[in-house]
Design a protein around this nucleic acid. Structure first.
Length: 585
RNA sequence: GGUGUCGUAGUUCAAUUGGUUAGAAUGCCGGCCUGUCACGCCGGAGGUUGCGAGUUCGAGUCUCGUCGACACCGCCA
């Protein structure tokens, strides 16, 4: 037997028991005469003690060999410590082993297995199995497990069925790039890995299953980000005989349950709602962080025709008001200017107006504007003495986006993005379609199965860009956690949608014939939502990167540096698949 | 596809802005120490400064290329 107890559970009450524990050597302290080993497993650390004058010679010899991360099995009596450690749960006791077995020797690990490791990200990813031994990584994976368990519990209790859908499916032209898998039995043809089980879950509704969910891997062959992996997990859900309100209420409930059961945090329902249009105008983004307000105000009409060419020559002038920041130094303002001028942000420059405590103004454009002008701006911003106005100008769309980035930066600098505080929001009334200038056609903003708002259907033929969708995104603290829609549920509307997207009837049939056929056999009105499970984990864990919550993530370039994947395959494999590599890049 | 930052002992970083033998901490190895728990003390080993070219009397430092890591833009219905 390898253990009677784990390394985290023995207490003073267990004094006198004969126990066996197994684990890894966290640390060895040789004091001369006395030697201690901290033995670690998933549950904690227990100290082994060895007395050079009393412990068996063979055991001492084995102890001498032990280095960090050796795997040991130790049997002995639990004794009360002579000097206790109140920082450890097991700090009152230790074990004097009378048997010790080295189960596995270990090379010295390339980085320290401590809460604050000395290893870089790259090194820790290469040796991810060692990294996982560290408490922060272990905790993140436990958090992920807890969120998964509570998701299943809530959805089960609400009548949802977890149903698996296939991973080898068919490539579709819309949306993200597909990962593709060659078929051996049908040379020259390919499966695609699903970007989401979208059509399957709709067919499950046709199948009458009513309420479906799945914790499901999805795959998108696009470039990575801190919050984007090529394979990721969704909480994918669909319901029948529901409208938008039913779904929003149901999944506010899920989120409320997760916050309460996993973090013991109370969040209020119903969540606030904001139209996509308002979000873009007020915050420059469709996923505003509402832990702080600092909305964007437009002052184009106040700032133009006063002789300042930069403002006169543009479509849009607007900015944000940072409270109590008029005392910002030249250096800080230069930093902000540099920040917005980074190519990633792309602003040409930054105009500031300090609304001083004494009511006077100091700005970078004093040459062009009178104090009265600046006062009118301050009023437009709702600014008070002591506030700092930060103003950008340019093309409207781009400037709003730049202001949204600047707003988040100011939120960070002013510590307004409080960790542990959660402000949920539904963003609704998304445009159904997006015009693409390059290909001169509309694309579905969400996906081609999303229905239009009834009152906007009249614009469908005359001004499709104006049609709003029955879609909703859940945003918490500026993170887009999930989104969904009420689906189209009749053949005619679906065909009209494919038409708008430029599909010929034949193309629509070839791609989605099974769905159009299915729609002829009695379709319940239905809709659903999908959450980024990894993002929920990162939000709950307080991290910006989902990699910390994935056991074996891919790096920035989509590689698994532990496996060294992707990799070449053998000539035999290629032959079997009837594939030929023409250009190795 | 593009932009930016970075790359120096096993590891994390430094090197006075181009100048002697590239340092520190930590880890590792050896020795001492009977109550440690980030133990302590003494000693030791450890380097093709990612790789390649160039400028220079002289390059870790400057230039170009290349490879890699990270963040972002494009992309992600």
């Amino acid at each position: 037997m390898y253990r009677t107890h784990n390394c985290g559970e023995l207490r003073i009450e267990d004094k006198g028991q004969n126990v066996t524990i197994s684990g890894w050597v966290q640390r060895k302290r040789d004091k001369g005469g006395m030697i201690w080993i901290d033995l670690r497993d998933r549950y904690g650390i227990t100290q082994l003690a060895f007395d050079e004058s009393k412990t068996d010679k063979n055991i001492l010899e084995a102890v001498g060999k032990c280095g960090r991360e050796y795997v040991l099995k130790a049997t002995g009596k639990v004794v009360e410590r002579y000097s206790k450690n109140d920082k450890m749960p097991t700090g009152d006791i230790e074990i004097f082993p009378d048997e010790l077995e080295i189960l596995s020797a270990a090379k010295t690990p390339p980085f320290t297995i401590e809460n604050e490791s000395d290893g870089s990200d790259e090194l820790r990813m290469k040796y991810r199995y060692l990294d996982i031994r560290r408490n922060p990584v272990k905790k993140a994976l436990i958090l992920r497990h807890n969120i998964a368990r509570e998701t299943r519990k809530y959805l089960d209790e609400n009548g949802f069925l977890e149903i698996e859908t296939p991973n080898l499916i068919k490539s579709t032209p819309e949306g993200a790039r597909d990962f593709v898998v060659p078929s051996r039995m049908h040379p020259g043809t390919f499966y695609a890995l699903p970007q989401s089980p979208q059509t399957f879950k709709q067919l499950l509704m046709l199948g009458g299953l009513d309420k479906y969910f799945q914790l499901v891997k999805c795959y998108r062959d696009e470039d990575l980000r801190a919050d984007r992996q090529p394979e990721f997990t969704q909480i994918d859900c669909e319901m029948s005989f529901v409208d938008k309100e039913d779904i929003m209420t149901q999944f506010e409930g899920l989120m409320q349950h997760l916050f309460k059961s996993v973090l013991n945090v109370d969040i209020d329902t119903p969540f606030n709602r904001m139209s996509w249009h308002d979000a873009m105008e007020k915050y420059g983004t469709d996923k505003p962080d509402l832990r702080f307000d600092m909305p964007i105000s437009e002052i184009t009409h106040l700032a133009q025709n006063k002789g300042f060419k930069v403002f006169d020559s543009v479509e849009y002038v607007g900015g944000i008001c940072a409270e109590k920041s008029a005392s910002y130094s030249r250096k800080q303002l230069d930093e902000l200017t540099k920040f917005v001028q980074q190519p990633q942000v792309g602003a040409k420059g930054l105009v500031y107006v300090k609304y001083n405590e004494d009511g006077s103004f100091k700005s970078s454009v004093d040459k062009f504007f009178t104090p009265e002008d600046l006062k009118s701006w301050a009023e437009a911003f709702g600014a008070k003495p002591g506030d700092l106005l930060l103003i950008l100008a340019g093309n409207k769309q781009e400037t709003l986006e730049q202001l949204s980035v600047l707003r988040l930066e100011m939120g960070n600098r002013l510590n307004l993005r409080t960790p542990g505080r959660y402000v949920p929001l539904w963003v609704i009334d998304f445009p159904l379609l997006e015009w693409d200038d390059e290909t001169k056609r509309y694309y579905a903003k969400h996906h081609p199965f999303t229905s239009a708002k009834t009152e906007d259907i009249k614009f469908m033929d005359v001004d499709p860009g104006k049609v709003r969708a029955n879609a909703y995104d859940m945003v918490i603290n500026g993170v887009e956690l999930g989104g969904g829609s009420i689906r189209i549920h009749n053949t005619l509307d679906q065909q009209r949608m494919f038409n708008l997207l430029g599909f010929s009837e034949e193309e629509a049939r070839a791609q989605f014939g099974f769905l159009l056929d299915a729609f002829q056999y009695g379709v319940p009105p239905h809709g659903g939502i999908a959450f980024g499970f990894d993002r929920i984990c990162a939000l709950f864990g307080g991290s910006d990167s989902i990699r910390d919550y994935i056991a074996f993530p891919k790096n920035n370039a989509g590689r698994d540096i532990m496996l060294d994947a992707p990799a070449r395959i053998s000539e035999e494999q290629l032959k079997e698949l009837k594939l030929k590599i023409v250009d190795k890049g």
